[in-house]
């Protein structure tokens, strides 16, 4: 019975996400456009010889952030605003199944993003380190938990319209200080250190190392990813309200 509810809710969440034009723009269209544009037009001279090697992991990180932070947060904020969460609170669905379905829907969209972005990257001449795939999956799941917790936290404390602006603003801010589309090392030293505290830079660094360079992921990135993956969902659960 519990599984039936979880599956029904997951199906509904996935269906609604895929039918929302603005969420597909953010999660699929923008990453693909940035990937093609920045790899063809060398706006940002990168440290590595070919720009696609740098851009492909960075854009994957960007796509993950769009889904798990922005998309989840905005949708949840409006569901609260429309009284949907409140109404669900008096059904047998229950909080764990609702959150489980939301997480499952995020992972489904992320899989779709990989299915779209990886072939495009390969077509643009990307040569990933295949051995890093396992590490990359672990890194993405940790980042998803961290971003998702942060997004739900925002959706829980802000009004839907304010949250819409805040989530998009945070996405842009984190994009600028994440090393996703330009190397972290290009930032002033102090800003680079600040950036490393947030999960965006850690995710980007980890994917670059795992998929691009075949390096080990540095300790600071693991630390940031794990801390956010534990603390942000805990804070979201502590502040979560049906209304």
């Amino acid at each position: 019975m519990r599984l039936q509810r979880l599956l029904a809710q997951t199906g509904a969440e996935v269906g609604m996400t895929l039918r929302r034009g603005e969420s597909l723009l953010l999660t699929v269209a923008i990453p693909v456009i940035l990937l093609v544009f920045l790899s063809k037009i060398h706006l940002v001279p990168s440290a590595v010889s070919d720009s696609i090697s740098f851009l492909a992991p960075g854009i994957l990180a960007l796509a993950v952030m769009g889904t798990s932070l922005v998309n989840l947060s905005i949708a949840t904020g409006f569901e609260r605003g429309y009284g949907v969460l409140k109404r669900l609170g008096s059904t047998p669905l229950g909080r764990p199944s609702l959150l489980g379905a939301k997480i499952a829907a995020v992972v489904v969209v992320e899989v779709l993003q990989v299915i779209v972005l990886v072939p495009v990257s390969l077509a643009l001449g990307w040569h990933p380190t295949a051995g890093g795939a396992g590490v990359a999956v672990a890194v993405v799941l940790l980042a998803t938990a961290g971003f998702g917790g942060l997004g739900l936290l925002l959706a829980g404390v802000l009004r839907a319209e304010v949250n819409l602006a805040a989530a998009n603003g945070l996405w842009l801010l984190l994009l600028l200080v994440s090393g996703m589309v330009s190397p972290l090392a290009k930032l002033p030293r102090w800003l680079e250190e600040v950036a490393k505290v947030f999960p965006a830079a850690a995710l980007s660094q980890a994917l670059h190392d795992a998929l691009g360079l075949g390096h080990a992921v540095p300790g600071w990135a693991w630390l940031a990813l794990v801390l956010w993956a534990v603390l942000a969902p805990a804070a979201a659960i502590a502040t979560f309200k049906w209304e």
Partner: peptide, 30 residues
């Protein structure tokens, strides 16, 4: 919650969801 039915004063349904889909979804909670 399994034995109670609730109609809120307003809202409570996903704005993009049609009546049939919403009823089928809610039916699967019970």
């Amino acid at each position: 919650v399994a034995r109670m039915g609730v109609m809120l004063q307003r809202g409570g349904v996903y704005p993009v969801m049609g009546a049939r889909r919403a009823l089928r979804l809610f039916a699967r909670y019970y």
